[in-house]
Nucleic acid binder design. Sequence first.
DNA 1: GGAAAATGGAACGCTAGCGTAACGATCTTC
DNA 2: GAAGATCGTTACGCTAGCGTTCCATTTTCC
Lengths: 116, 116
Amino acid sequence: MPIELTASQALGLWHGAALDQVRHDDRDLTLRQMAILLHIYLVPPPHTVRGLAATLDVTKPVITRALDTMGEMGLVDRVRDDADRRNVIIKRTVGGALYLEKLGDLIRDQARRLPI
Amino acid sequence: MPIELTASQALGLWHGAALDQVRHDDRDLTLRQMAILLHIYLVPPPHTVRGLAATLDVTKPVITRALDTMGEMGLVDRVRDDADRRNVIIKRTVGGALYLEKLGDLIRDQARRLPI
DNA sequence: GGAAAATGGAACGCTAGCGTAACGATCTTC
DNA sequence: GAAGATCGTTACGCTAGCGTTCCATTTTCC
């Protein structure tokens, strides 16, 4: 039996988690960057620029820029693919894992706090 | 009994919802803007620039700019407070309500889809 | 009534994001 | 091995975001 949320619970969850995240973390990721980051960590590798662009339905430079920024933040890493040196493989980092671990905790806390 | 999510479910929910939202809506709100928008719609009014800035722990211009942008997008509206004409009261709009209704649906869909 | 406080916004210089178009490097194909 | 396709990135001109500082308006407090 799947998890059923009311509309109010769904938005309340999003609201609480977004609020907590804003309050406790300076890094103000856009929704796109967030989607990219989560995709890298939740979907089995390998991940490429091209693949991510297709998945999110955005252009390639959007991915390149997001990786630049999040790389600077220590959330992701890039490595050339030795099998096909045109490709870049996007790697996870300890920093990224920590970031998402905290985000996950925060969402779980909010879910626990939801009125039934 | 509160809603209990595993870490994987929490991030999976966020991932799926963020991805869907990115794919189907051009408006790429930052997490801050999202938090502001949800706060306006989920917490009883009145909402002021000052109050929102304190709530999110950001500076006033951040709120002003977010309201500029989201006002342009038709998600919120501003009205001078007649009782105290220094204040600006932030108003909800039909566009904003629709936006959040869609976001809520999308989160609920993702919740339903989560592996138990 | 006049000084002080409070509110939202504008100005400034800067960084980061955007889409489009082009690029060098690398693989594929014939 | 030359021609074409594919990959990620860079360049360009632009918009939107940032923090800090300052400002006009309005209210409060003696």
